[in-house]
């Protein structure tokens, strides 16, 4: 099996697991959002590298060029990036409101306050 030749997928997997682990293991809500971002970014790279064809160029018709990269995954991931930005913005907004309501962004301290009430 060609391990090194698939290096783009290895990057995807490492990023994906890093982000996922940060989301699960960190109690700080902002760090959770950061982890979520890394997790989503890995998917962006998955899509972008999937559209690249070795030796291919930008999909603009030009004389002497026969191999083009596939533009569709790149366009798709533009949409996914927008969704990711919206999610991050909403997540951070919620964190601001949580900080106002609970006075902390640490999950354990929030849980403690919830138990008290």
């Amino acid at each position: 099996m060609d391990v090194l030749g698939l290096y783009n997928y290895w990057i995807v997997i490492v990023l994906m697991m890093t982000g996922f682990y940060v989301v699960i293991s960190r109690g700080n809500l902002i760090k959770k959002v950061v982890g979520l971002n890394i997790f989503q970014t890995s998917v962006f790279i998955l899509y972008i590298s999937m559209g690249k064809i070795i030796g291919g160029t930008a999909p603009i018709v030009a004389p002497g060029v026969t191999v083009y990269s596939n533009p569709l995954p790149h366009v798709l991931i533009l949409t996914a990036i927008v969704v990711g930005v919206a999610t991050t913005a909403l997540g951070l907004t919620l964190i601001v409101r949580i900080k106002e309501a609970f006075g902390t962004v640490e999950e354990s301290e929030i849980l403690q306050q919830r138990d008290d009430t």
Partner: peptide, 9 residues
């Protein structure tokens, strides 16, 4: 708020 954040994640 925390419920919404949890659901968001």
């Amino acid at each position: 708020l925390t419920a919404a954040f949890q659901y968001l994640v």
